[in-house]
């Protein structure tokens, strides 16, 4: 690599094919929005879950959209906001990480990856000013630190490390409330995912743009985990089992787990 040249794919794209960068003309047109993503740390790493709904105004545009993706073999990205730009942003970020790894022969550090995502978001600033906001959560296994880490972002590209749990999207306030009570960083993966699904259930309960656990169609939140063993996506049967348990319990207690207040 020549001095002054960048190993970044996004920088290269900006130079040779700026029209392929994620983005839209902006303005007041209706756009499809993706909604709620939650993530939490557990004993061996991090888990993330995202609901499957996309909305267009008050209508449901899609019931089975995917908003949680593996960024590389150590990290996961989940996105809420304008779906078209969000999905493109994820694709660009995935190529960005892989491109650096191939050119330089080694992976970016965890903080390096988190910073690059912030830079890509800043590139979307003009669109964000026009209401086309995309907000990601970035989580993964930090090899060097030997633990799971999580970052949330704002629309200016600012990144903030989260320690216990985090959420983003229209139902995030409700999900955060649930996670605050349910989350326990010392539990195993299954229990942590159970907590995330409970939080998404509560978000769907109060936010019309978030989907719940759809047993009739068999559409469930998408769950991924990152640990020292790498990134894995939960299969549908695993999520269904937990979803059925939650729904059975909620049939008796619609508002979910009840705690002794102390």
């Amino acid at each position: 690599m020549l001095p002054g040249e960048s190993p970044s794919f996004a920088d290269y794209l900006r130079r040779v094919a700026p029209e392929t960068l994620p983005g839209a003309a902006g303005g007041n047109f209706p756009a499809v929005h993706g909604t709620t993503i939650v993530a939490a740390r557990y004993r061996d790493g991090v888990v993330m879950a995202g609901d499957r709904r996309a909305t267009l105004g008050s209508a449901i545009a899609m019931r089975d959209i995917e908003k949680v993706f593996g960024a590389d073999d150590r990290t996961i990205i989940g996105v809420a906001g304008v779906a078209g730009i969000a999905v493109e942003l994820v694709r660009l970020f995935q190529v960005e990480l892989e491109h650096f790894e191939k050119v330089e022969g080694l992976q970016l550090s965890f903080d390096g990856k988190a910073n690059r995502l912030g830079a890509l978001l800043r590139g979307n600033m003009a669109q964000a000013m026009q209401g086309l906001v995309v907000l990601p959560l970035f989580v993964g296994w930090d090899e060097r630190a030997g633990r799971g880490r999580m970052f949330s972002y704002d629309s200016t590209g600012g990144r903030y490390e989260e320690q216990e749990y985090c959420s983003v999207g229209s139902g995030s306030a409700f999900a955060r409330g649930a996670l605050k009570k349910l989350h326990d960083p010392s539990v195993d993966e299954r229990t942590a995912v159970l907590g995330l699904l409970q939080a998404l259930y509560d978000a769907a309960d109060d936010d019309s743009a978030t989907s719940g656990l759809d047993l009739t169609r068999g559409i469930f939140p998408l769950v991924m985990r990152a640990s020292a063993e790498g990134v894995a996506r939960w299969d549908e049967a695993g999520v269904r089992e937990l979803a059925e348990a939650i729904i059975a319990a909620r049939a008796g207690r619609p508002d979910g787990p009840r705690g002794a207040a102390l």
Binding site: F9, Y12, V16, A17, V95, H99, V103
Partner: peptide
């Protein structure tokens, strides 16, 4: 060949992305 390698990665990633 190092600069050719990087050109090749760029060519491939750009094509795969677009």
């Amino acid at each position: 060949f190092e600069s050719l390698r990087i050109s090749g990665i760029r060519h491939a990633d750009l094509r795969g992305y677009s």
